[in-house]
Each structure stands twice: as structure tokens, then as C-alpha cells.
Design a protein around this nucleic acid. Structure first.
Lengths: 363, 363
DNA sequence: CCCAGTAAGCCAACGCTGTTGCGTTACGTC
DNA sequence: GACGTAACGCAACAGCGTTGGCTTACTGGG
């Protein structure tokens, strides 16, 4: 389905870029878009004509500033498209439908059992997806699934862990796509969460890390405006980074893993120690990839977000030597419990209408 | 100097992509290039006509395989362009001239003093650059400078360290460019080294980390084919990551920094312990960004490369749980002592003829 | 020796981008 | 109501890669 001609690719990229600007919320003028895309206003007219023709955007009134013809404003048409996002864990399934801007139209939740065999799991996912389809009325683009643990986004396969894991090796994307006859994307939960954040604020999040604290600990990176997947789709799997040699035992069979230490500190009621673990991870991460924003998300972190953010800010400013030209913002995700489900849905939106990675080039 | 039209940007990207394929060394056919760029052979003819017109490529004979008109081969014209690379440390200046493929045409070395004031330093750099200009005869594209410590590539400024540092804040790029009347690029030594590696093997290094062990410890990342600079041009500054709490004292005033621990182990004659420090750093790094290649480079690492590579391989295979679908190659840089100087020169080549980062899209 | 068969490459027309130049529309101001 | 101004549309244009047809150059069989 890749556009055949490089010209199509240019047009597609410009369409996506206009949508990215429009997604910020406020109606935009032709002149604003021309400045943002570095093309002439006339080109913007043609791009907008294409987008309006596809129902993705619409005129949004005019404003008059001084003499001359009033400026026409344009806005995104949120209800023109929908996407479904499912957040799968070992005990729960949480699903949402979102519109083109990532706004939630409806949500569902369900307790499930991890011992469910793969066909039953696919049926459970499909059932929830079908229920969510009834909400809203834009064109449905597909279903995104976010889940913890080693996930191969490219292959759409849950790789699983070494311990007995009934879902190990499940080709969830293929199975669910066949069942629903819709495009399906499968990704790591932390990456889905970050895609959700970048979809709604693409202009702010060029170099951003997201720390996801659920049962385990994961990270996701957006560097130079692009989500990092890694050579084996395993980027951000930092839960088993050793932070204290000989520390708390971990499910992976070793000791002192970040997520085991974090969990042990929480179980001992020591929120400060748990925060220190996250702060240490955050500092290492910022040093290596130099992001200017760290977003915290996940069920577990919300309970202690104040002390956690304080610890991260403290370690960052100490560890980066308080150099005046370096500033790293530490933020809390605003999506709450919907973070990953919304993110998985936004992966579908991103796939359909995101700015493409590379337009031309070898390989 | 940015191309005015998106069409020009497409053409420029295709030109760069053809050069990237040709850089691999072997002459290539029109059909090979068409497959690599996913365009028609006819388009390759037009692209090659542009490149040959600029002197960057040339015909390289024909081969006949079976019946039909023989295939025309094309090769890069290495001597058509040159770039100068300078590797600056606190005690030494090492410079090279390279051709378009990154091959060394000549080198120079000089002991310098760190107490040299900034104007004298610029004069020293300019003098070496001028001497190097006399070697070879292609068009000279510019001068690249690689140096350790916090460097702002975007601004072309050496930020410097907190301890008394006579070069702190030096706008080396601007000063040297004014002195030489040539384009100048300033970058971190580890990033320069990685650019050098990717310039000569762009097809192999899509997700690669380079660990540079000189006096300090630095890293550089190439993710999804792009060099990572970070929000403040500080990506890869991992020398002061704490690997052992309360460990060896570091010049930064704290204890247990990776580079201090590594240095302390080496000073104690314990090469195995030094290798363990590097292996620990490598594992954390691979976990976070999931590269499939780790390249080791730098003066210090060459003395103990066997034990170091063994330690890294051991820690990686243990730490990644030996999952069969994950394979990380650990390599030693082949550039030896020229690594950073060549890399700095290749940054100039990359700037002039590399595949551009983003062709279109919002700011 | 000639001629069919095959594959590479060129030429010219085309469709598609965004750009340019100029005219039209719609507003505020005098 | 005339004038200046700013946004916008129309039409012609340049440049990209694509398409279809023709030419070139080689092999191999009659």
C-alpha cells in the first residue's frame, strides 16, 4: 500500500504534517501552515483541498485582523476517523475508542485470567473490540494492542518470558487481524503510551523519554521526533537493569533488577526508596540519550507521584551538574488509567496519518 | 543553502542515497541502484547523470552476463572531494585528510598544551588544517573537529567542564570557520567516531552503539540509521554514570563514575575489572536502545581489547537472557588511532552528501 | 555469415508535486 | 464611495520520477 511515486510520498508527508499541526487543537491559518511546512501558501491550499476532500479537515470560520480579506481558518475533523486501543495485562483487559485527535469516545474493562489459552485470548480481545466499534461513527482505522513484556512490533508477536508463559510466541497481530478483518498493531505498553503522548502534542515532544511503572518497569524513547523501536523491537526493556548488586530477587532469577528493587521498596512501604530507584534509572537514561522531557506514567507511579517526581528532579539536577544550558522537564502523564489503551489506539492513528519515517533512501 | 523546492529535496535525497550505495566500494549497476532506492532504472539514469555531471561518480566499465546488452557499472569518484578532520584532546592534536570514501590521504600529529588560550588554540588548529590542505587535490569541503567533553554541535561551542578549563565556552566552530574561510563542524569525539564508521558501512550500521574509551568514557548512538545528538547535543555523555556507589573518586567530585572506576581498575593493573565496567555500561545501553552492534574504539581500549570484548559478550548474553531472536555483535573499530580524526572528517562528508534527516514536515 | 532472441539503456510524453505571476475578493479606512 | 491592504484562486510553469516505445549491443543457433 506504499505510494508508488516519490511525489506521492511528498504529498503524503505534507498531508501528515498539516494534520500534525492541526492536531494541536487551535484552528490554523493557511499562512501558519505555510510557515510550519516551509512551503508557499498556495501549496497549502492544494494540500488542504486534498485533506478536506478526504473529510479529515474542515473550514473553521474566519478572523479579521486589520484591513484586507479575513484569514480563513481550518481545523481537524475529529469525528471523521476512529481507532480502537486495547491494553492487555496478565489480569486485565482495558479498551478505548478514540477519535482522530486521540480523544476518548468510550471505554471498557474486563478481568481476565492469564491461564487463558491463546485462541480464547484472541476471542476475548475481538469481543471487546467489537463492542467498542459501536461507539462513535467515524471510519474505523484499526485496532492497537499494548502489552508488557517482550513484544515484537514488526512481527506482531508476543515473545514472552522464560518462565512458564501460556502466551509465549503468540502471533497476536495476525490472529486478531484475521478475526476482525481490520488492521491490527501490537506493541510494547511503554511505547504505546509514548505514542499516545506524542500524538496529542507532537510539537512539544521531540526528545522525550517515558517511564512506565506498572507491574514491571519499562521505558520508551522519542528521539529527534521519532519513536525508537530498536533492532529487535526491544528498546526500552529496562526492567531488568541491575541497580543494586545482590539486591532483591527478581522473577528473572537474578538479583537487584530495577523493577524488583522498586517493587521491594514499595512492598516495604518505603516510597522514598522506590522513588530513588526510578530516579537512578531516569538519570542514566537522560545521560545516554539526552532527552529534555521525562514523562512518568503507569498505574503504580500515580500513587506516589509527588515523591517520585521530586526524587527524579533532584537526581537529574545533581547528576547533570546543574549546567545552565541543560534543562530537563519532568512531567506526569495526564491520561491516567487510559494511558496505554489510548496510546495503542494512537499507534493506529500514527500508522495511518503520522509523518512517515523516511521518504526516500537506500534499502 | 537549503533547496527551495520539495522536488529538489527529493532529488538531493536520491543523489545522497546513490552515493551511500556506491560508497560500499564495489561498482554498482543501474539495476542494483533501482532496487536499492525503489525507483525505476530510468530514474537512476537521471540521478547518475546529475552525479556524473558534478564529478562525484564515473562509469566503471561493463560486464556481460549472458545475452543482451552488457550492464554498465558505475563507481564513486573518491578523489573528487576531500575533507579535513581534526582530533583535539588536552595534550594532542591529530589531523587527517580523507577522500570522498573516507580513505586517508595524509595525517599529522602535534603535542599541544591545554593551557593554551583560545586564540592560540584556534591558530594551532588552523595551521594544521592548512598543512593538510596541501595533500590531495579534490574539492575541499570543510573541516571537522572532534573533541571530548561537553560539546554543543548545533552551536559549535565547547561547553567545557566545571573545573578550571581554559577552553570553556569557546565558540570554536565560528572562530575556525572565520580563520579558514571554510565550513567547520564541531562535535563530540564519540559521535565523530561513529559517523566515521557509518560513513564507510552505511548498510551495516542501522542500530549501532559505539563505546569510546580514551581518557574518559563516551558513547554514541546510531538508531534507525540516524545519529542521535539529543536535545542539548549531549547524547552519549555517560562517563559520569555511577556504576558503584561509593566507588573510586572522579574528577567531577563524586564517586563511582564509570570512567573513574574504569581508570582505577586499569591503574591497579586489573584489566578484567576494567572490562567489567565497560561490559556493565554496554549492557545497560543495549537494554535501553536495543542496538544490534556495539563497536569499541579509543586509545585505551585497544590495549586490552580481547578481554574487554569477551567481557561485553559474556554480560550481553547473560543479561539478555540468551533469547534466540536477539543477537548483538561486538566489534572493534578498525580505524585505530585515526578513529576520531577520520570521523570528524566524515562528519563534513556526511553534512555535504549524507542522506538528509527529514525531507518534509513541520518544523 | 546472417538473423533471431535477449537485455540494457535512451527518448519523449506524461502525471504529479510545489512555485510563480497575476487577477479577484473582501475587509478597514479616509 | 474611493482607496489601500491582505487573503486567496486561477493558470502557466519547472522539476521530479514514471511509462511506453525504440535503439543499442551482445549471445547463440541456423
Amino acid at each position: 500500500m506504499r505510494p508508488s511515486s516519490p511525489l506521492d510520498r511528498v504529498a503524503g508527508a505534507h498531508d501528515a504534517a498539516v494534520l500534525a499541526v492541526a492536531r494541536r487543537g487551535d484552528p490554523v491559518s493557511r499562512a501558519d501552515l505555510a510557515a510550519a511546512l516551509r512551503v508557499t501558501p498556495q501549496a497549502i491550499s492544494k494540500i488542504l483541498a486534498r485533506l478536506i476532500g478526504r473529510g479529515l479537515m474542515a473550514e473553521a470560520g474566519t478572523i479579521t485582523a486589520g484591513p484586507g480579506k479575513p484569514t480563513t481558518l481550518y481545523r481537524i475533523e475529529p469525528s471523521s476517523r476512529r481507532a480502537i486501543g486495547l491494553h492487555l495485562t496478565r489480569t486485565r483487559l482495558h479498551g478505548v475508542v478514540v477519535d482522530l485527535t486521540g480523544e476518548i469516545l468510550g471505554r471498557l474493562a474486563l478481568e481476565i485470567g492469564h491461564l487463558q489459552p491463546i485462541p480464547d485470548l484472541v476471542a476475548t480481545l475481538a469481543t471487546m473490540a467489537r463492542e467498542l466499534m459501536d461507539i462513535g461513527d467515524g471510519e474505523l482505522l484499526g485496532v492497537g494492542v499494548g502489552m508488557p513484556g517482550p513484544v515484537d512490533r514488526g512481527e506482531g508477536v508476543y515473545r514472552g518470558t522464560a518462565d512458564p508463559d501460556p502466551w509465549r510466541g503468540a502471533p497476536l497481530r495476525r490472529l486478531l487481524a484475521a478475526e476482525l478483518e481490520l488492521p491490527v498493531l501490537l506493541d510494547h505498553d511503554s511505547r504505546a503510551a509514548l505514542v499516545g503522548e506524542t500524538w496529542t502534542q507532537p510539537h512539544l515532544l521531540r526528545d522525550t523519554a517515558l517511564l512506565l511503572v506498572e507491574d514491571g518497569l519499562g521505558a520508551a524513547l522519542c528521539l529527534n521526533g521519532r519513536i525508537i523501536h530498536g533492532a529487535h523491537s526491544q528498546a526500552g526493556e529496562i526492567g531488568h537493569t541491575v541497580v543494586r548488586i545482590g539486591g532483591a530477587p527478581c522473577s528473572c532469577g537474578r538479583r537487584g533488577c530495577a523493577q524488583a528493587e522498586h517493587r521491594a521498596a514499595l512492598d516495604a512501604g518505603d516510597a522514598a526508596a522506590a522513588a530513588d530507584v526510578l530516579a537512578s534509572v531516569a538519570l542514566d537514561l537522560v545521560r545516554l540519550v539526552d532527552v529534555d522531557r521525562v514523562i512518568l506514567g503507569g498505574r503504580t507511579v500515580h500513587e506516589h507521584h509527588a515523591v517520585t517526581m521530586e526524587a527524579i528532579r533532584r537526581d537529574l539536577s545533581a547528576g547533570l551538574l546543574a549546567e545552565p544550558w541543560i534543562h530537563v522537564e519532568v512531567l506526569l502523564s495526564t491520561r491516567g488509567a487510559d494511558l496505554i489503551a489510548v496510546g495503542a489506539a494512537c499507534e493506529v492513528l500514527e500508522h495511518a496519518y503520522g509523518v512517515p519515517q523516511g521518504l526516500v533512501g537506500p534499502e
